Amino acid sequence: MAHARANRPAGDRANLYQQITDRIIAELEAGRVPWVQPWGTAKAAIGLPHNAVSDRRYSGINILTLWDAMVSRGFASHAFLTFRQAVALGGSVRKGERGIGVLYTRRFVPREERRRADLEGREPSGGIPFLKWFTVFSVEQCDGLPAHIGEPPPPIPDGLIFPQADALISATKADFRIGGPSAFYSPTHDYVQVPRPDDFHDPVNWHRTAFHELGHWAGGASRLNRDQTGAFGSVSYGKEELVAEMAGAFVCAALGITPTVRHADYLGSWLEIIREDNRAILRAASAASKAADYLLAFRPQAIAANDDDPDHDPDGAVAIEGRIAA
């Protein structure tokens, strides 16, 4: 039956927990990390699953559950909805489609507490948390939905990513992902993620962010091997951020790209580092230059120039390519 009941027996819920756990274990044992995108067989672009009606993102274990469904069933959309939501929109879930079980937390508030809260003009406090189980379907399992429901994000408009930047990013062969709400480099999984350029107030600043994160990537263990173990807010973290920021600026300058200047409040932690150690800026600039040179060496003209250089060590070039491919 397409529309499973929301209230399931406790045994069914316990079984669902075990199914989820077993699936995650199987993925890890197969050498796949189920919370890292993209997956080799996925049709969907990077993103988080969300409800097609409310646009609210699913969270916690539901993200992994829905990602698994997207990969195993070949869904290209991140949008899901319940049977009733599909009907309310004038559509329907196709006969024979299997839903995906997801969980959500509710809080039971005793009637007496609700009454007191109403009398006192406040929100009820306390309560007993409990989990509920319900079924959702991909919008791709439905017919008759309005055209705007579950639409994938539009392609990035032409011209927002400068061609010289696009070519360099592609040439690095870095695992470079566009999408999501934040920019970061993951040393553990060795990939870069940045939001779409049209998510920036001034799209030119996408390039600064992209090459900042690639500055971190260049410092990865298999490349320039900088210390990237500092915890957020620590001095070593601030130093690495300073290196990446300068590396991004150097690369943008080399490519003829002029982002806007960061606000002064963003520079506070770096100023503190520089003031406390008069060699910090020298070390950071040196490391940033090495990172920028590492990235810029992937430009076709740089490779051609090296090929024409009688002092260039061809074995060194092969070694760099080997590290990138690793």
Score class of each variant (00 low, 15 high):
98 R>N: 14
99 G>I: 02
99 G>F: 10
99 G>V: 00
101 G>Y: 05
105 T>A: 14
106 R>T: 10
110 P>K: 04
112 E>G: 03
114 R>Y: 12
115 R>Y: 08
117 A>M: 01
117 A>H: 06
118 D>G: 14
124 P>E: 00
125 S>N: 05
125 S>D: 08
126 G>P: 08
128 I>W: 03
130 F>G: 10
130 F>R: 01
130 F>I: 04
131 L>Y: 07
132 K>W: 02
132 K>G: 05
132 K>D: 11
135 T>F: 04
136 V>Q: 06
140 E>C: 08
142 C>P: 05
143 D>Y: 08
143 D>Q: 03
144 G>E: 07
145 L>A: 02
148 H>Y: 14
150 G>S: 08
150 G>W: 03
151 E>H: 11
152 P>M: 01
153 P>Q: 10
156 I>S: 13
158 D>S: 14
158 D>Y: 04
158 D>Q: 14
158 D>M: 12
158 D>C: 07
160 L>I: 09
163 P>N: 03
164 Q>R: 14
164 Q>E: 15
165 A>F: 08
165 A>D: 01
166 D>L: 15
167 A>E: 14
167 A>L: 05
168 L>N: 00
169 I>M: 11
169 I>Y: 07
174 A>Y: 00
174 A>P: 00
175 D>R: 15
176 F>I: 02
181 P>T: 11
182 S>I: 13
183 A>W: 09
184 F>T: 08
185 Y>A: 14
185 Y>T: 09
186 S>K: 08
190 D>F: 06
191 Y>M: 12
191 Y>W: 13
195 P>S: 07
196 R>Y: 10
197 P>A: 15
197 P>M: 13
